[in-house]
Design a protein around this nucleic acid. Sequence first.
DNA 1: CTTGACCCTGTAGCGACTACAGGGTGCAGA
DNA 2: TCTGCACCCTGTAGTCGCTACAGGGTCAAG
Lengths: 132, 132
Amino acid sequence: MPALSIGDLARRTGVPVETIRYYERMGLLPKPPRTEGNYRAYEAAHERRLAFVKRSRDLGFGLDAIRALLDLADGADRPCGEVDALARDQLAEVERKIADLTAMRAELQDMLGHCRADTVADCEIIGRLRGR
Amino acid sequence: MPALSIGDLARRTGVPVETIRYYERMGLLPKPPRTEGNYRAYEAAHERRLAFVKRSRDLGFGLDAIRALLDLADGADRPCGEVDALARDQLAEVERKIADLTAMRAELQDMLGHCRADTVADCEIIGRLRGR
DNA sequence: CTTGACCCTGTAGCGACTACAGGGTGCAGA
DNA sequence: TCTGCACCCTGTAGTCGCTACAGGGTCAAG
């Protein structure tokens, strides 16, 4: 495989060009070699690393957690307890958000279900936002 | 009721002092009168308005939407269709987020459920982040 | 040899706060 | 009366994860 330009990498991974440069600045991706014209020249290893980052982002991991995951992934012999802990923390966070949003959904549905008025004066939604 | 200081208002509404000042800068709260010593002096109406903002925030409305809701709430005779539309948009947004997070949760649970390895080399979690 | 797509760096903006720094105010106790 | 302390003020910068320029350079096709 020949070297990939940043645009090629963006198309292959679905990660925007600007975001790839951002990840590089943030230390998630190694600085790739440059061409004569100072263009970034990526290889397959870069693509794999970026795909790892993208999948982690899609699962909601923050960039700090991803840095940690990448470090761990690079040390094959290390025990994977830390990986487990990171995933567990992330799951807990996701569950917390789901709980919050589920409560919001119930309240919004209830408001909308009771909305029968024509004017703001007796609007159930406004009334509830006011606190009944 | 005597005038409330910003700290009193913060304690009564559960909104931090810094956030109250921020809402004022953003035009969600009117600029209150000041004491001789240049302290903000709030009345019951301010407290009601801030409570409205807080409840809306707790339901996930953005500050722009809240500004619109406040405007609508101030005009009692206007039809409440716009209020309805804002609430409906917010519900749709909340449902979209729940769907995303539910997918994340399933994937994270699945990863964690399959984690039986001792080392990173055969860690199921790392493997899946790598793309199997 | 020009056009246009791509690439480069550096900086500023988003939303909704949050956290200072560096000062002023006000009140209770010694 | 003085002093200490909690509170208040403004203004600015930082957070997170991008995203959007501005102002330039590179490169291949026509």
